[in-house]
């Protein structure tokens, strides 16, 4: 047959090309969603913002003054004469001022960004990984497996996560990694499995699954090559929404001082609180103590949400405009 003489490109190269092509079309849809790119721009901003910190520390910022945890800067004579002491308002030296312990707020803000990213994305990844796997498995097998995981999801959904984390923080050393894993795992067995399972169920009944069975495809083959790839876009979407939840949870725990970490946005707000700057007139007078941190939390969460909505347009074609 003539066709057999065709010279083929190596398969991986073809696939790479296809992937690039699909990325391009998806990017176009994402771009058309308008709000997606805004979110992405904010995320990019924070990404650069966080990445700049080590750079600044090794070049222009003196560690003794600017270290987000151990730094201290003496007020200048001029400031002392005015009766000013820490926390100092924004100045050219400290663009966002200093905290009650004389540390640079901007440096703290930049330093914490990395942690927030890590926590949010890692926790969301764990959630979605577990959720996708369990969703696909319980949809495909049904029966007891399905009932078990769905009842478990019900329990997890009714579970007071924050209260549990508060108790947990008393029992174990809750740092960023453990928190990410705990949030991720608990999230993974919760509501997301129900959503992803219902998606997997719509795929399970497609004739191409039957075609794979007729060819002799194993359960594993069907789950991995047909069900999961078709659930994955939705998983990715939920991952974006889950980032938001994880960052919020961390902020709340830090605010209560329950986290064993040196610096985070939540902790910055907490420090403003415990040193008595979150009451009465102080709220407006010492705005730099908590506004930058709380704004960053809101902004980053919003950004991931916006990106999620942008991806929504790709995943759910019915949302697209004609």
């Amino acid at each position: 047959m003539e066709a057999a003489q065709v010279r083929y490109q190596p398969l991986w190269r073809v696939r790479l090309g296809l992937m690039r092509k699909s990325l391009a079309t998806n990017w176009e849809l994402f771009r058309d969603s308008k709000i997606g790119p805004i979110g992405l721009a904010i995320i990019l901003f924070f990404g650069i913002f966080g990445a700049l910190h080590p750079l600044l520390m090794s070049t222009v910022w003196d560690a003794a003054i600017y270290d987000p945890v151990t730094g201290y800067d003496f007020p200048t004579d001029a400031q002392l004469k005015q009766g000013l002491t820490h926390p100092l308002p924004p100045s050219t030296k400290h663009l966002l001022g200093t905290d009650p312990w004389g540390r640079d707020i901007l440096s703290q803000l930049m330093y914490s960004t990395r942690a927030e990213f890590f926590l949010g994305v890692f926790a969301a990844f764990v959630t979605v990984f577990i959720g996708t796997l369990i969703g696909a498995i319980s949809a495909y097998y049904g029966g007891f497996t399905d009932t078990f995981f769905m009842r478990l999801a019900d329990v997890v959904m009714l579970f007071p996560l924050l209260a549990f984390l508060i108790v947990l923080s008393a029992m174990i050393n809750l740092n960023l990694y453990t928190l990410a894993i705990v949030i991720g795992v608990i999230g993974g067995f919760g509501g997301i499995t129900v959503v992803l399972k219902s998606q997997a169920l719509t795929i399970k009944v497609k004739p191409y699954i039957e075609a794979a069975k007729v060819s002799g495809g194993s359960h594993l083959h069907i789950i991995t090559t047909h069900i999961i790839p078709n659930v994955l876009p939705l998983s990715f979407l939920y991952m974006m929404f889950n980032v938001t939840g994880a960052i919020f949870t961390e902020a709340v725990l830090s605010f209560f001082g329950l986290m064993n970490i040196q610096m985070s946005w939540g902790l910055m707000v907490e420090m403003a609180n415990i040193s008595g700057y979150l009451v009465g007139d102080a709220v407006t007078k010492y705005w730099w103590l908590f506004w930058p941190a709380s704004l960053s939390i809101s902004l980053l969460c919003t950004a991931f949400y916006l990106v999620g909505r942008g991806i929504d347009e790709i995943v759910n074609p019915r949302l697209r405009k004609r």
Binding site: K206, Y208, A211
Partner: peptide
């Protein structure tokens, strides 16, 4: 087996 709906029978 060949299925009825060519829009649903291909992944």
């Amino acid at each position: 087996m060949i299925f009825q709906d060519p829009y649903e029978s291909l992944n």
